[in-house]
């Protein structure tokens, strides 16, 4: 029974969601709250899921705290960083509770620390793309060679240098014209084929769950 209950819950909610998404009367059905405001039942159910996720946030905080307290106790390598993490985790949460989401210091830390750190991490991509592309574009096979030629044309089509070498007003629309053709015809066809496969794969994965065949999320084969 320990196994059956989660499977039943999963199947019931999967079917409820599917029926709500498809059936117009259910999708449009509205409920009225005690204060007179109305909301779609579907929206209310979706909000309930968001609420449950927020409650579950405490599990994440507990896991982080447990791991880092353990690091500090055992004096593992780099353990002072664990103190720093816990101070920031709880300090920022307390600051948010005291000052509110629009608090001066709370906002300053967000805009002055988190946003620049985010941008810094994102900017790392440029370097990683270069190193990954170097490995991928080493011409070791016909496919790799083809990919390199296509990538080179796309790059030239995206830059003014490409336009200077072969103008878009000349034969075939220059590098830009070839880039457009590559992106709109072979690339779009490949993407759509992948998306079709993904839809079918995802749908069949959902059917396996609906039929109770997929049990590995319960640790079973």
């Amino acid at each position: 029974m320990r196994r059956e209950i989660p499977i039943i819950i999963t199947i019931v909610f999967l079917l409820v969601r599917a029926v709500f998404e498809l059936m117009g009367p259910l999708y449009d059905y509205q409920i009225t709250f005690p204060d007179g405001t109305k909301e779609k039942l579907f929206t209310s159910l979706s909000n309930a899921v968001v609420f449950m996720s927020v409650v579950a946030l405490f599990m994440g905080i507990w896991n982080l705290t447990r791991n880092h307290v353990s690091n500090i106790r055992r004096k593992k390598e780099n353990w002072p960083y664990s103190i720093w993490l816990l101070v920031l985790l709880y300090g920022y949460a307390i600051l948010g509770i005291v000052q509110g989401m629009k608090g001066k210091h709370f906002d300053w830390i967000y805009n002055g620390v988190i946003v620049p750190l985010d941008s810094t991490t994102f900017s790392l991509l440029a370097f990683f793309i270069a190193s990954a592309a170097y490995r991928a574009f080493r011409v070791r096979s016909l496919e790799a060679g083809l990919m390199m030629v296509v990538a080179f044309i796309i790059m030239l089509g995206n830059t003014s240098l490409g336009n200077a070498i072969w103008s878009q007003t000349s034969f075939l629309g220059g590098f830009k014209g070839i880039r457009d053709w590559l992106m709109n015809i072979p690339n779009a066809a490949g993407f759509r084929a992948l998306n079709l496969g993904l839809f079918l794969g995802g749908y069949v994965a959902a059917v396996r769950v609906a039929l109770g065949l997929e049990r590995r999320y319960l640790g079973q084969d």
């Binding site: 990683f128 990954a132 992948l194 079918l200 794969g201």
Partner: peptide, 21 residues
């Protein structure tokens, strides 16, 4: 779909599209 080229470039083996499911 948009991350597949990165994985193909950076990883030793990549299962793409519905191969994943």
């Amino acid at each position: 779909v948009h991350q597949m080229p990165f994985f193909v470039a950076a990883c030793d083996y990549t299962l793409i599209g519905e191969e994943f499911y």
